[in-house]
Each structure stands twice: as C-alpha cells, then as structure tokens.
Design a protein around this nucleic acid. Structure first.
Length: 367
DNA sequence: CGCCTAACCGCCATTACGTCA
DNA sequence: GCTGACGTAATGGCGGTTAGG
C-alpha cells in the first residue's frame, strides 16, 4: 500500500491512499513528491495480535490435523495494522482498535452479561416457531430484527436444503467430519442459485450480530469448526458466518486505516508548520548575517551541543538583537515534529521516532 | 525433489438491499 | 410516498497456501 501525502494541501493528501496493492510486505510508504517527503511505515508483524495469535494457538490445540491447513499466515495476523510509528513513545491511539472491537453491550436488548442466550435460538429450523419467538424476544426497537426474521424464514425456506443438510448431518450435536465436508460443499458455492433463488439481502438480528461480535473479539478468523458451531448457534448458514467475519474484518481494517490516516494528517500538519517556521528562521538568519558582519564572527565553540542528541542546546553568544530563537533556545523537546536546529528542515521516516532527534548531527556552524 | 493441480481461504472491489432522515 | 445517503450482507475475482498426485 502506498499512502500519498501532500503537505499543505489537504485536498490532495490521500489521493492514492486507497490504491489497491497486492504486495504483502509489511512496509508501507508515505510519499510526498513535492517535498521529497518520505515516511516509511513499518508494520510490525502481529503488533496488536498477540491475543489473536494466542487464540489461534489455543484453537490449534483443539483442532485436528486436518484443520492445520486452514491456519494460514494471514490468519496469524488478520488485522492489518498500519503501525505508523511502531516504536514511538507518542500515543498511537491504541484504543482505536479496542473501540472498534468493543461492543456496546449495554445497548443490547438482551440485558446484562453477554446479553444473548444462544439457547433461546432455535436450533431446528422451525420457521413458524422462529417467527413467534422473535416477536417475543426482540427488543422494542428491534424492528430490523423483526423484519429480518421474516425474511430469514423465507430465505431459509428457499435454502432449506443446505440448512437441512447441515443440521441433519450433525444430529448428535458433535461437529464431525461429515459436518465439515457438508459445510465445505456449501461454502462459497452459489447454493442460492441452485434453488433458483436470487440473492435476498438479510439483516442479522441484534442478537446474532452481538454474538458474532463477541466471537469476533475472541478470534477474528474462524476455522471450519468454529464457523460451523457459530452457524449452528445462530441458526445461520456457515457461509453467512464466514461472510460476516469477512466483512467485519474489512470494517475493522477500514476503521483502523481511517484512524491512521488522521494521525498521519496531524503529523503532516505539524511538520508543515515546523517547516514553515524553520524556513522563516533561516531567512532571518541570512538577513542577520548580511546585515551584521560581526554576527558570524562569534566563536562557534560558544555554541554548546547536547552530547546525547547533538543539538544546539543553548548559547549565550548571540547578540542580544538576534531573533534566532530557534537556535538559541533549542530544548530537548519530545515533540515528534520538533526539528533539529538545522537550517534545513529534515523529515525523518517514522522508524526514526524511536530515537527521535538523535540521528542527525546538526550544528549552526555549518552555515 | 520439483512441478502441477485442486481445494481452501482471506482480501478486495463491487453489487444489492434494507434502513433512515 | 419518494429519494439519497449510509450500512452491510452477499458476490465474484484474485492471490497465497497446502496437500496430494
């Protein structure tokens, strides 16, 4: 993925941001051609997916060998983390992902806890009973759920063969190979078409969505067993569960991208402002140099350098008339966008943030 | 051991539909 | 009632991985 950034022109900031990319490298770039501004966006593997990986491992322990082949590297790091500043001390809004994954359980009609009792869902496709139950269990404002259930019944009627196959093949409740085979047979197939039923969009009930959300928080990818179990619990087709997780991952990624975009934008604005300020200072310094012949005769040794960051820490030699505040008053700023005291503004890739301000050796004497 | 193929899966772009203001 | 925006379920294509021949 390539992120286009345009300093000073918000309208062009992310023109190429969403360009599709097929590379699977964990290095993203933000470029600004006009200013030669290149931000290396290093995406650390599994930065925020420790839990996910652990969960996968747990699942792995539960699964048989047959399921191992479903544990792809993608599944190990399912959430694409645009870790723009992987090592920066700057808060990278870690709550963003949390917020995305958090679910407002308190708003659920189901009440406390998980707010959802899967036992209340019919495991047997009894359309009449299902409709009645929905009417009894839906929250007052759950009009969508009600309408969904109505459609859902119709939908299931039209696809009864699939559901019947899935459910009948597991009458004991265990998820045997027969289930997996049946699920695979139906998965990603146009099982709707075989009955001549065109796609009918359905709305998942709030309870169903909530349960899927909860499951998503535990693991945002599903192995076949999990998929089938969820489908059974929610009285959905495995394909529906699979699609829901797919779309959910897409939404998570999109939200994360937006958050990262905002962060990048703020970074660029700050850097632009800093750039502007330093340019102004440079002009002032040059003007001062030309107007005050004694100015540059000051001994350079009077400029003290910070040994750690090699920045001009302080100076007492500037003429009192100077306006070189940036040089004279440079401090150990932790501002990620603070410059290095050089007359020429420099933009550092994000990987520099872990050693912010400690890479370049700058000195005013170079002028 | 390398190659080929099929199956499977995830991601992506897109479509289609339901909901709401 | 109509309409456009928005959210999201669903679809199809593509690429990567893996197992088996």
């Amino acid at each position: 993925m390539e992120l286009g950034l345009s300093l000073g022109d918000a309208s062009k900031t992310f023109g190429t941001f969403m360009e599709k990319s097929h590379d699977h490298h964990h290095h993203h770039h933000v470029t600004n051609k006009s200013l030669g501004f290149c931000m290396g966006l290093s995406i650390g593997p599994n930065v925020n997916n420790t839990k996910e990986t652990d969960q996968q491992d747990e699942d792995h322990d539960d699964d048989d060998e047959e399921l191992k082949k479903h544990k792809s590297p993608e599944a190990e790091a399912p959430i694409v983390q645009l870790d723009l500043l992987p090592n920066t001390p700057v808060q990278r809004n870690p709550s963003a992902t949390v917020q995305l994954l958090a679910f407002p359980w308190g708003q659920m009609g189901g009440g406390g806890g998980r707010g959802f009792d899967v036992n209340k869902l019919p495991l047997v496709v009894d359309h009449q009973a299902e409709t009645d139950q929905d009417g009894a269990s839906s929250s007052p404002n759950n009009s969508a759920a009600s309408s969904f259930q109505t459609d859902f019944c119709i939908y299931n009627n039209n696809n009864n063969s699939n559901n019947k196959r899935d459910f009948d093949s597991s009458g004991s409740g265990a998820l045997g190979n027969h289930d997996l085979e049946a699920e695979r047979a139906s998965s990603r197939n146009s099982d709707d078409d075989e009955n001549g039923c065109t796609r009918k969009k359905l709305r998942l009930s709030k309870d169903q969505s909530a349960f899927l959300e909860e499951s998503f928080k535990e693991h945002n990818t599903l192995n076949p067993k999990q998929k089938l179990a969820l489908a059974k619990q929610l009285n959905l087709r495995p394909r529906q569960v699979e699609v829901w997780f797919q779309n959910r991952r897409a939404r998570t990624k999109l939200k994360q991208t937006e958050v990262d975009c905002e962060y990048l934008k703020r970074c660029c604005e700050t850097l632009t402002e800093e750039n502007r300020r330093l340019h102004k200072e440079l002009q002032e310094l040059r003007a001062l140099k030309s107007s005050n012949p004694f100015y540059m005769q000051l001994p350079a040794t009077t400029l003290t350098m910070c040994p750690s960051c090699e920045r001009v820490a302080t100076t007492t030699t500037n003429p009192p008339t100077t306006t070189t505040t940036a040089v004279a008053t440079t401090t150990h700023s932790t501002d990620p966008t603070s410059n290095k005291g050089s007359g020429r503004p420099r933009f550092y890739p994000f990987s520099h943030n872990q050693n912010r301000g400690h890479q370049s050796t700058t000195s005013t004497s170079e002028k």
